[in-house]
Design a protein around this nucleic acid. Sequence first.
DNA 1: TACTATAGATACCAATTGGAAACTATTATT
DNA 2: AATAATAGTTTCCAATTGGTATCTATAGTA
Lengths: 114, 114
Amino acid sequence: MKTKKNNHTDTICAVDYAFQRIGGKHKGRVIYQLRNGIKRYGELRRLVTGITAKMLTQVLRELEDDELITRTVYLEVPPRVEYELTDTGRELLPFIRLLADWGKQQMEKEIIAE
Amino acid sequence: MKTKKNNHTDTICAVDYAFQRIGGKHKGRVIYQLRNGIKRYGELRRLVTGITAKMLTQVLRELEDDELITRTVYLEVPPRVEYELTDTGRELLPFIRLLADWGKQQMEKEIIAE
DNA sequence: TACTATAGATACCAATTGGAAACTATTATT
DNA sequence: AATAATAGTTTCCAATTGGTATCTATAGTA
């Protein structure tokens, strides 16, 4: 789900709008991993399992364009880059938690059903 | 986001799991439009703006496979088919509402910023 | 007889998304 | 001199997703 430079204005429905900003395969998980504060690129790479470098970078850039996270580059060698949720991004946490709770319940149900 | 016949079991993360079930371009809005009870296919077609017949059918089938909605066919002519949220689907409503609220706020902010 | 309504199916095509592998730059370490 | 660490980029390819247009069935209506 590509979000092209904050062009959500053509959307009318708030639900649709929200999905455009946090949809996509990994965005939810990246936001979730930033829930307790700053994380470095490499940490996210390890925490968000199954993601490739390319995708992680892409997702982070989209979230940054959407002003849900900030990106801070330290001019060191080797390089250090830190990511953090913005206020707007943090507003999404309650909802991600709700979703995670629901997901957990459902996963448990599925295991029982097997 | 294709959900192939309830194969969410390979997922470990609850957030990821949840996104697999309600991600995709239109799923959120379809669920949202079913919030007040039964809707017919044609009603959804009109309510979920910008969706094609093919996509609506596809989304509805996926939601059905995932047991988030039920599908009831009446053998009449012309045909009548009704869709309704299951209990599991209804559990998602608070979260969709939260998301909608957030989206609405953000959209208002964007308008002000222009 | 032709048209309408309803809920799709189907075939084909285009765009988007995601992934693998190789490559970059610089400093410190072995 | 080779290797490791970090945060990427680039290219190419495959899979997924979404869209357009056309077609189906049946009864009632004009």
